[in-house]
Nucleic acid binder design. Structure first.
Lengths: 208, 208
DNA sequence: GTCGCTTCGGTACATCTGTACCGAAACTGT
DNA sequence: ACAGTTTCGGTACAGATGTACCGAAGCGAC
Protein backbone atom coordinates (compact mmCIF):
# COMPACT_ATOMS: atom_id res chain seq x y z
CA UNK A 1 0.00 0.00 0.00
CA UNK A 2 1.39 3.38 -0.90
CA UNK A 3 1.63 5.03 2.48
CA UNK A 4 0.57 8.67 2.80
CA UNK A 5 3.02 11.46 3.43
CA UNK A 6 3.10 11.16 7.19
CA UNK A 7 4.69 14.16 8.92
CA UNK A 8 5.94 11.92 11.68
CA UNK A 9 7.00 9.12 9.36
CA UNK A 10 9.77 7.03 10.85
CA UNK A 11 13.23 7.63 9.47
CA UNK A 12 14.91 4.54 8.10
CA UNK A 13 17.64 3.69 10.56
CA UNK A 14 21.11 2.73 9.27
CA UNK A 15 21.19 0.19 12.12
CA UNK A 16 24.81 0.91 12.86
CA UNK A 17 25.38 -1.73 15.49
CA UNK A 18 28.77 -3.28 14.96
CA UNK A 19 28.63 -5.53 18.02
CA UNK A 20 25.08 -6.73 18.39
CA UNK A 21 24.37 -7.46 22.05
CA UNK A 22 23.33 -10.97 22.90
CA UNK A 23 21.30 -12.62 25.58
CA UNK A 24 19.40 -10.56 28.10
CA UNK A 25 21.35 -7.44 27.09
CA UNK A 26 19.65 -7.67 23.75
CA UNK A 27 16.31 -7.62 25.49
CA UNK A 28 17.18 -4.33 27.13
CA UNK A 29 18.37 -3.03 23.82
CA UNK A 30 15.01 -3.85 22.27
CA UNK A 31 13.16 -2.08 25.08
CA UNK A 32 15.30 1.03 24.59
CA UNK A 33 14.64 0.96 20.86
CA UNK A 34 10.92 0.60 21.52
CA UNK A 35 11.03 3.75 23.62
CA UNK A 36 12.72 5.68 20.84
CA UNK A 37 10.07 4.47 18.42
CA UNK A 38 7.26 5.36 20.81
CA UNK A 39 8.72 8.82 21.24
CA UNK A 40 8.83 9.28 17.50
CA UNK A 41 5.58 7.76 16.23
CA UNK A 42 3.54 6.91 19.31
CA UNK A 43 2.73 3.57 20.90
CA UNK A 44 -0.02 2.60 18.48
CA UNK A 45 2.08 3.11 15.39
CA UNK A 46 4.90 1.03 16.81
CA UNK A 47 5.71 -2.08 14.80
CA UNK A 48 8.04 -4.99 15.40
CA UNK A 49 9.97 -4.10 12.27
CA UNK A 50 10.48 -0.49 13.31
CA UNK A 51 11.79 -1.58 16.69
CA UNK A 52 14.03 -4.25 15.21
CA UNK A 53 15.54 -1.74 12.77
CA UNK A 54 16.07 0.81 15.53
CA UNK A 55 17.75 -1.76 17.76
CA UNK A 56 19.78 -3.27 14.95
CA UNK A 57 18.55 -6.78 15.58
CA UNK A 58 16.69 -9.18 13.29
CA UNK A 59 12.91 -9.09 13.30
CA UNK A 60 12.59 -12.44 15.02
CA UNK A 61 14.49 -11.15 18.06
CA UNK A 62 11.56 -8.91 19.00
CA UNK A 63 9.10 -11.76 18.94
CA UNK A 64 11.53 -14.05 20.71
CA UNK A 65 11.92 -11.80 23.75
CA UNK A 66 8.36 -10.50 23.90
CA UNK A 67 5.24 -12.59 23.67
CA UNK A 68 3.41 -9.91 21.70
CA UNK A 69 3.57 -6.35 20.58
CA UNK A 70 1.30 -5.49 23.46
CA UNK A 71 3.76 -6.94 25.96
CA UNK A 72 6.61 -5.02 24.37
CA UNK A 73 4.77 -1.71 24.65
CA UNK A 74 3.83 -2.38 28.26
CA UNK A 75 7.39 -3.30 29.17
CA UNK A 76 8.74 -0.24 27.37
CA UNK A 77 6.45 2.11 29.28
CA UNK A 78 7.26 0.41 32.56
CA UNK A 79 10.96 0.68 31.83
CA UNK A 80 10.64 4.38 30.98
CA UNK A 81 8.75 5.03 34.19
CA UNK A 82 11.32 3.17 36.28
CA UNK A 83 14.16 5.10 34.68
CA UNK A 84 12.50 8.49 35.07
CA UNK A 85 11.38 7.83 38.63
CA UNK A 86 14.97 6.98 39.55
CA UNK A 87 16.14 10.23 37.99
CA UNK A 88 13.44 12.16 39.83
CA UNK A 89 14.52 10.62 43.12
CA UNK A 90 18.05 11.82 42.51
CA UNK A 91 16.73 15.32 41.81
CA UNK A 92 14.58 15.13 44.93
CA UNK A 93 17.71 14.61 47.02
CA UNK A 94 19.24 17.71 45.47
CA UNK A 95 16.07 19.76 45.89
CA UNK A 96 16.27 19.45 49.65
CA UNK A 97 19.03 22.06 49.54
CA UNK A 98 17.25 24.55 47.31
CA UNK A 99 16.31 27.95 48.67
CA UNK A 100 13.32 30.18 47.96
CA UNK A 101 15.62 32.37 45.90
CA UNK A 102 16.79 29.78 43.41
CA UNK A 103 14.05 27.13 43.41
CA UNK A 104 12.17 28.67 40.48
CA UNK A 105 15.37 28.92 38.47
CA UNK A 106 16.18 25.28 39.10
CA UNK A 107 12.69 24.24 38.05
CA UNK A 108 12.83 26.41 34.94
CA UNK A 109 16.11 24.84 33.88
CA UNK A 110 14.68 21.40 34.51
CA UNK A 111 11.62 22.19 32.43
CA UNK A 112 13.78 23.65 29.69
CA UNK A 113 15.81 20.44 29.56
CA UNK A 114 12.63 18.37 29.35
CA UNK A 115 11.64 20.42 26.32
CA UNK A 116 14.96 20.21 24.48
CA UNK A 117 17.56 17.55 25.30
CA UNK A 118 15.08 15.15 26.87
CA UNK A 119 12.16 15.97 24.62
CA UNK A 120 11.68 12.42 23.38
CA UNK A 121 11.65 11.14 26.93
CA UNK A 122 9.12 13.79 27.94
CA UNK A 123 6.81 12.96 25.06
CA UNK A 124 6.93 9.30 26.08
CA UNK A 125 6.09 10.18 29.67
CA UNK A 126 3.00 12.17 28.78
CA UNK A 127 2.09 9.61 26.17
CA UNK A 128 2.11 7.12 29.00
CA UNK A 129 -0.41 9.23 30.84
CA UNK A 130 -2.83 9.36 27.95
CA UNK A 131 -2.33 5.69 27.23
CA UNK A 132 -2.98 4.82 30.87
CA UNK A 133 -6.30 6.61 30.54
CA UNK A 134 -7.18 4.07 27.86
CA UNK A 135 -5.48 0.92 29.18
CA UNK A 136 -5.96 0.06 32.84
CA UNK A 137 -2.86 -2.15 32.75
CA UNK A 138 -0.72 0.97 32.58
CA UNK A 139 -2.35 2.78 35.49
CA UNK A 140 -0.14 1.41 38.27
CA UNK A 141 2.85 2.65 36.28
CA UNK A 142 1.29 6.09 35.90
CA UNK A 143 0.39 6.17 39.58
CA UNK A 144 3.96 5.35 40.59
CA UNK A 145 5.27 8.18 38.46
CA UNK A 146 2.69 10.52 39.92
CA UNK A 147 3.74 9.63 43.47
CA UNK A 148 7.40 10.26 42.66
CA UNK A 149 6.53 13.68 41.27
CA UNK A 150 4.55 14.57 44.36
CA UNK A 151 7.44 13.54 46.61
CA UNK A 152 9.70 15.79 44.57
CA UNK A 153 7.45 18.79 44.99
CA UNK A 154 6.80 18.03 48.65
CA UNK A 155 10.55 18.30 49.18
CA UNK A 156 10.67 21.60 47.33
CA UNK A 157 7.75 22.91 49.36
CA UNK A 158 9.57 22.08 52.55
CA UNK A 159 12.77 23.69 51.28
CA UNK A 160 11.06 26.97 50.49
CA UNK A 161 9.07 27.05 53.69
CA UNK A 162 5.66 26.10 52.39
CA UNK A 163 3.19 24.28 54.54
CA UNK A 164 3.51 20.53 54.83
CA UNK A 165 0.36 19.77 52.86
CA UNK A 166 -0.46 16.85 50.65
CA UNK A 167 -2.84 19.04 48.68
CA UNK A 168 -0.14 21.58 48.00
CA UNK A 169 2.32 18.98 46.72
CA UNK A 170 -0.35 17.63 44.38
CA UNK A 171 -1.21 21.06 43.11
CA UNK A 172 2.41 21.99 42.49
CA UNK A 173 2.89 18.73 40.60
CA UNK A 174 -0.22 19.31 38.56
CA UNK A 175 0.72 22.88 37.72
CA UNK A 176 4.23 21.92 36.68
CA UNK A 177 2.98 19.05 34.53
CA UNK A 178 0.26 21.17 32.98
CA UNK A 179 2.73 23.89 32.17
CA UNK A 180 5.20 21.43 30.68
CA UNK A 181 2.54 19.78 28.55
CA UNK A 182 1.39 23.15 27.33
CA UNK A 183 4.94 24.12 26.38
CA UNK A 184 5.48 20.75 24.73
CA UNK A 185 2.48 21.18 22.45
CA UNK A 186 2.89 24.86 21.76
CA UNK A 187 4.24 26.51 18.66
CA UNK A 188 5.52 29.40 20.77
CA UNK A 189 7.14 28.05 23.92
CA UNK A 190 8.42 30.53 26.47
CA UNK A 191 12.07 31.36 26.99
CA UNK A 192 13.75 30.49 30.24
CA UNK A 193 13.34 33.96 31.77
CA UNK A 194 9.58 33.92 31.32
CA UNK A 195 9.41 30.35 32.54
CA UNK A 196 11.32 31.36 35.63
CA UNK A 197 8.91 34.24 36.26
CA UNK A 198 5.87 31.98 35.99
CA UNK A 199 7.39 29.36 38.25
CA UNK A 200 8.39 32.04 40.76
CA UNK A 201 4.76 33.09 40.95
CA UNK A 202 3.70 29.46 41.37
CA UNK A 203 6.08 28.82 44.24
CA UNK A 204 5.22 32.19 45.72
CA UNK A 205 1.55 31.27 45.83
CA UNK A 206 2.28 28.16 47.87
CA UNK A 207 5.25 29.27 49.99
CA UNK A 208 4.59 30.64 53.47
CA UNK B 1 -7.92 13.58 -10.71
CA UNK B 2 -11.12 11.55 -10.68
CA UNK B 3 -12.30 13.00 -7.44
CA UNK B 4 -13.26 16.61 -6.80
CA UNK B 5 -10.20 18.49 -5.60
CA UNK B 6 -12.26 20.77 -3.45
CA UNK B 7 -15.51 19.37 -2.07
CA UNK B 8 -17.54 22.41 -1.01
CA UNK B 9 -20.47 21.87 1.26
CA UNK B 10 -23.50 21.15 -0.93
CA UNK B 11 -27.01 22.46 -0.32
CA UNK B 12 -28.87 21.40 2.82
CA UNK B 13 -30.99 18.29 2.72
CA UNK B 14 -34.66 18.56 1.73
CA UNK B 15 -37.35 17.55 4.19
CA UNK B 16 -37.31 13.94 3.01
CA UNK B 17 -35.41 11.90 5.57
CA UNK B 18 -33.30 8.85 4.90
CA UNK B 19 -31.70 6.44 7.32
CA UNK B 20 -28.11 7.15 6.34
CA UNK B 21 -26.95 10.76 6.25
CA UNK B 22 -25.93 12.03 2.84
CA UNK B 23 -23.90 14.87 1.49
CA UNK B 24 -22.00 17.14 3.84
CA UNK B 25 -23.93 15.73 6.79
CA UNK B 26 -22.22 12.46 6.09
CA UNK B 27 -18.88 14.19 6.26
CA UNK B 28 -19.68 15.46 9.75
CA UNK B 29 -20.87 12.01 10.67
CA UNK B 30 -17.51 10.58 9.63
CA UNK B 31 -15.62 13.18 11.66
CA UNK B 32 -17.70 12.34 14.74
CA UNK B 33 -17.06 8.66 14.24
CA UNK B 34 -13.35 9.35 13.88
CA UNK B 35 -13.39 11.10 17.26
CA UNK B 36 -15.04 8.12 18.89
CA UNK B 37 -12.42 5.84 17.37
CA UNK B 38 -9.58 8.12 18.47
CA UNK B 39 -10.98 8.15 21.99
CA UNK B 40 -11.13 4.38 22.01
CA UNK B 41 -7.90 3.30 20.34
CA UNK B 42 -5.84 6.43 19.78
CA UNK B 43 -5.10 8.38 16.63
CA UNK B 44 -2.36 6.11 15.34
CA UNK B 45 -4.45 2.97 15.56
CA UNK B 46 -7.31 4.63 13.70
CA UNK B 47 -8.17 2.98 10.39
CA UNK B 48 -10.56 3.91 7.63
CA UNK B 49 -12.46 0.70 8.17
CA UNK B 50 -12.90 1.33 11.90
CA UNK B 51 -14.24 4.81 11.22
CA UNK B 52 -16.55 3.64 8.45
CA UNK B 53 -17.99 0.93 10.67
CA UNK B 54 -18.48 3.38 13.55
CA UNK B 55 -20.21 5.88 11.27
CA UNK B 56 -22.28 3.24 9.49
CA UNK B 57 -21.12 4.26 6.04
CA UNK B 58 -19.33 2.27 3.36
CA UNK B 59 -15.54 2.25 3.39
CA UNK B 60 -15.27 4.36 0.25
CA UNK B 61 -17.12 7.23 1.92
CA UNK B 62 -14.16 7.91 4.18
CA UNK B 63 -11.74 8.20 1.29
CA UNK B 64 -14.21 10.20 -0.74
CA UNK B 65 -14.57 12.96 1.85
CA UNK B 66 -10.98 13.00 3.08
CA UNK B 67 -7.91 13.05 0.91
CA UNK B 68 -6.04 10.79 3.31
CA UNK B 69 -6.16 9.23 6.72
CA UNK B 70 -3.83 11.97 7.89
CA UNK B 71 -6.31 14.63 6.77
CA UNK B 72 -9.13 12.84 8.54
CA UNK B 73 -7.22 12.73 11.82
CA UNK B 74 -6.30 16.39 11.55
CA UNK B 75 -9.86 17.39 10.80
CA UNK B 76 -11.17 15.28 13.66
CA UNK B 77 -8.84 16.90 16.17
CA UNK B 78 -9.64 20.36 14.83
CA UNK B 79 -13.36 19.61 15.08
CA UNK B 80 -13.00 18.36 18.65
CA UNK B 81 -11.08 21.47 19.62
CA UNK B 82 -13.65 23.76 18.01
CA UNK B 83 -16.49 21.98 19.77
CA UNK B 84 -14.81 22.00 23.16
CA UNK B 85 -13.67 25.61 22.86
CA UNK B 86 -17.26 26.62 22.14
CA UNK B 87 -18.43 24.74 25.23
CA UNK B 88 -15.69 26.35 27.30
CA UNK B 89 -16.77 29.77 26.14
CA UNK B 90 -20.30 29.07 27.28
CA UNK B 91 -18.97 28.01 30.66
CA UNK B 92 -16.79 31.11 30.78
CA UNK B 93 -19.90 33.26 30.49
CA UNK B 94 -21.44 31.39 33.44
CA UNK B 95 -18.24 31.57 35.48
CA UNK B 96 -18.41 35.37 35.55
CA UNK B 97 -21.17 35.01 38.15
CA UNK B 98 -19.40 32.51 40.38
CA UNK B 99 -18.41 33.48 43.90
CA UNK B 100 -15.42 32.53 46.00
CA UNK B 101 -17.69 30.27 48.00
CA UNK B 102 -18.92 28.07 45.17
CA UNK B 103 -16.19 28.32 42.51
CA UNK B 104 -14.30 25.25 43.72
CA UNK B 105 -17.53 23.25 43.79
CA UNK B 106 -18.35 24.24 40.24
CA UNK B 107 -14.86 23.29 39.08
CA UNK B 108 -15.01 19.97 40.91
CA UNK B 109 -18.31 19.09 39.26
CA UNK B 110 -16.89 20.07 35.90
CA UNK B 111 -13.85 17.88 36.46
CA UNK B 112 -16.00 15.01 37.64
CA UNK B 113 -18.06 15.25 34.45
CA UNK B 114 -14.88 15.23 32.35
CA UNK B 115 -13.90 12.00 34.05
CA UNK B 116 -17.24 10.23 33.67
CA UNK B 117 -19.84 11.32 31.13
CA UNK B 118 -17.34 13.12 28.91
CA UNK B 119 -14.46 10.76 29.46
CA UNK B 120 -13.99 9.92 25.79
CA UNK B 121 -13.94 13.58 24.90
CA UNK B 122 -11.39 14.28 27.62
CA UNK B 123 -9.11 11.49 26.47
CA UNK B 124 -9.25 12.90 22.95
CA UNK B 125 -8.39 16.38 24.21
CA UNK B 126 -5.30 15.26 26.07
CA UNK B 127 -4.39 12.93 23.24
CA UNK B 128 -4.43 16.02 21.05
CA UNK B 129 -1.92 17.61 23.35
CA UNK B 130 0.50 14.72 23.17
CA UNK B 131 0.00 14.37 19.45
CA UNK B 132 0.66 18.08 18.95
CA UNK B 133 3.99 17.55 20.67
CA UNK B 134 4.84 15.16 17.85
CA UNK B 135 3.13 16.79 14.86
CA UNK B 136 3.62 20.53 14.39
CA UNK B 137 0.49 20.68 12.21
CA UNK B 138 -1.62 20.20 15.32
CA UNK B 139 0.04 22.90 17.40
CA UNK B 140 -2.17 25.82 16.33
CA UNK B 141 -5.16 23.73 17.40
CA UNK B 142 -3.58 22.99 20.76
CA UNK B 143 -2.66 26.65 21.21
CA UNK B 144 -6.23 27.76 20.52
CA UNK B 145 -7.54 25.36 23.13
CA UNK B 146 -4.93 26.54 25.59
CA UNK B 147 -5.97 30.16 25.09
CA UNK B 148 -9.62 29.32 25.63
CA UNK B 149 -8.76 27.57 28.89
CA UNK B 150 -6.76 30.54 30.09
CA UNK B 151 -9.62 32.90 29.31
CA UNK B 152 -11.89 30.65 31.35
CA UNK B 153 -9.62 30.74 34.36
CA UNK B 154 -8.95 34.46 33.98
CA UNK B 155 -12.70 34.98 34.32
CA UNK B 156 -12.81 32.79 37.41
CA UNK B 157 -9.87 34.66 38.90
CA UNK B 158 -11.69 37.92 38.42
CA UNK B 159 -14.88 36.52 39.88
CA UNK B 160 -13.17 35.36 43.07
CA UNK B 161 -11.16 38.54 43.48
CA UNK B 162 -7.77 37.34 42.38
CA UNK B 163 -5.30 39.66 40.76
CA UNK B 164 -5.64 40.29 37.04
CA UNK B 165 -2.50 38.40 36.07
CA UNK B 166 -1.69 36.50 32.95
CA UNK B 167 0.69 34.30 34.92
CA UNK B 168 -2.01 33.37 37.38
CA UNK B 169 -4.48 32.39 34.69
CA UNK B 170 -1.84 30.19 33.08
CA UNK B 171 -0.96 28.56 36.36
CA UNK B 172 -4.57 27.87 37.24
CA UNK B 173 -5.09 26.34 33.81
CA UNK B 174 -1.98 24.22 34.15
CA UNK B 175 -2.91 23.02 37.62
CA UNK B 176 -6.43 22.10 36.57
CA UNK B 177 -5.21 20.26 33.49
CA UNK B 178 -2.47 18.50 35.41
CA UNK B 179 -4.94 17.42 38.05
CA UNK B 180 -7.43 16.21 35.48
CA UNK B 181 -4.80 14.23 33.57
CA UNK B 182 -3.63 12.66 36.80
CA UNK B 183 -7.17 11.63 37.67
CA UNK B 184 -7.75 10.33 34.17
CA UNK B 185 -4.75 8.02 34.32
CA UNK B 186 -5.13 6.95 37.92
CA UNK B 187 -6.49 3.70 39.27
CA UNK B 188 -7.76 5.52 42.36
CA UNK B 189 -9.37 8.81 41.34
CA UNK B 190 -10.63 11.08 44.09
CA UNK B 191 -14.27 11.52 44.98
CA UNK B 192 -15.94 14.88 44.49
CA UNK B 193 -15.50 16.03 48.08
CA UNK B 194 -11.76 15.56 48.00
CA UNK B 195 -11.59 17.13 44.55
CA UNK B 196 -13.46 20.13 45.89
CA UNK B 197 -11.04 20.46 48.80
CA UNK B 198 -8.02 20.38 46.51
CA UNK B 199 -9.54 22.93 44.16
CA UNK B 200 -10.51 25.15 47.08
CA UNK B 201 -6.88 25.22 48.13
CA UNK B 202 -5.83 25.99 44.55
CA UNK B 203 -8.20 28.92 44.21
CA UNK B 204 -7.31 30.08 47.69
CA UNK B 205 -3.64 30.25 46.78
CA UNK B 206 -4.40 32.61 43.91
CA UNK B 207 -7.35 34.61 45.27
CA UNK B 208 -6.70 37.86 47.04
C1' DG C 1 33.10 -35.32 22.89
C1' DT C 2 27.35 -35.69 23.79
C1' DC C 3 23.17 -34.05 25.68
C1' DG C 4 19.68 -30.53 26.71
C1' DC C 5 18.72 -26.12 26.96
C1' DT C 6 18.38 -21.28 25.26
C1' DT C 7 19.13 -18.12 21.71
C1' DC C 8 19.31 -16.80 17.07
C1' DG C 9 17.77 -15.42 12.29
C1' DG C 10 15.67 -16.23 7.98
C1' DT C 11 11.38 -16.85 5.97
C1' DA C 12 6.37 -17.86 5.28
C1' DC C 13 1.64 -16.66 5.61
C1' DA C 14 -2.94 -15.13 6.55
C1' DT C 15 -4.78 -10.86 7.57
C1' DC C 16 -5.25 -5.97 7.52
C1' DT C 17 -3.95 -1.65 5.61
C1' DG C 18 -4.65 2.84 2.59
C1' DT C 19 -6.40 4.20 -1.32
C1' DA C 20 -7.23 3.80 -6.45
C1' DC C 21 -10.78 2.66 -9.63
C1' DC C 22 -15.27 2.57 -11.96
C1' DG C 23 -19.99 2.26 -13.00
C1' DA C 24 -24.27 3.71 -11.01
C1' DA C 25 -27.18 6.90 -8.71
C1' DA C 26 -28.54 11.43 -7.19
C1' DC C 27 -28.52 16.02 -7.69
C1' DT C 28 -27.67 20.57 -10.32
C1' DG C 29 -28.96 24.35 -13.43
C1' DT C 30 -31.10 25.15 -17.80
C1' DA D 1 -36.60 17.13 -20.61
C1' DC D 2 -31.52 17.18 -20.89
C1' DA D 3 -26.58 17.27 -19.83
C1' DG D 4 -23.10 17.97 -16.42
C1' DT D 5 -21.45 17.43 -12.07
C1' DT D 6 -21.23 15.49 -7.46
C1' DT D 7 -21.90 11.69 -4.52
C1' DC D 8 -22.09 6.98 -3.70
C1' DG D 9 -20.57 2.08 -2.87
C1' DG D 10 -18.59 -2.20 -4.25
C1' DT D 11 -14.33 -4.01 -5.33
C1' DA D 12 -9.33 -4.48 -6.42
C1' DC D 13 -4.59 -4.39 -5.22
C1' DA D 14 0.05 -3.86 -3.66
C1' DG D 15 2.33 -3.55 0.32
C1' DA D 16 2.80 -3.76 5.55
C1' DT D 17 1.73 -6.24 9.59
C1' DG D 18 1.90 -9.71 13.66
C1' DT D 19 3.45 -13.78 14.52
C1' DA D 20 4.30 -18.83 13.69
C1' DC D 21 7.73 -21.94 12.24
C1' DC D 22 12.14 -24.33 11.83
C1' DG D 23 16.69 -25.39 11.37
C1' DA D 24 21.12 -23.65 12.94
C1' DA D 25 24.25 -21.99 16.36
C1' DG D 26 25.82 -21.14 21.00
C1' DC D 27 26.74 -22.91 25.72
C1' DG D 28 27.08 -25.01 30.30
C1' DA D 29 27.05 -29.76 32.65
C1' DC D 30 28.61 -34.14 32.37
Amino acid sequence: MPRPANPIAPQPQPAAKSSAPRGAARRDCIVDAALVVIGRVGPDALTHRLVAAEAGVPLAATTYWFASKEALILEAFAHAARRDIAQLERETAEAADWTSADAAGHLARSMRASLTEHRTRTVVDYGLWVEAARRPALRPVADAWSRACQAFFATILEAIGGRRSEHDARLLTAAFDGLLMDQLASDHPDDEARLTAVLERLLGAFAG
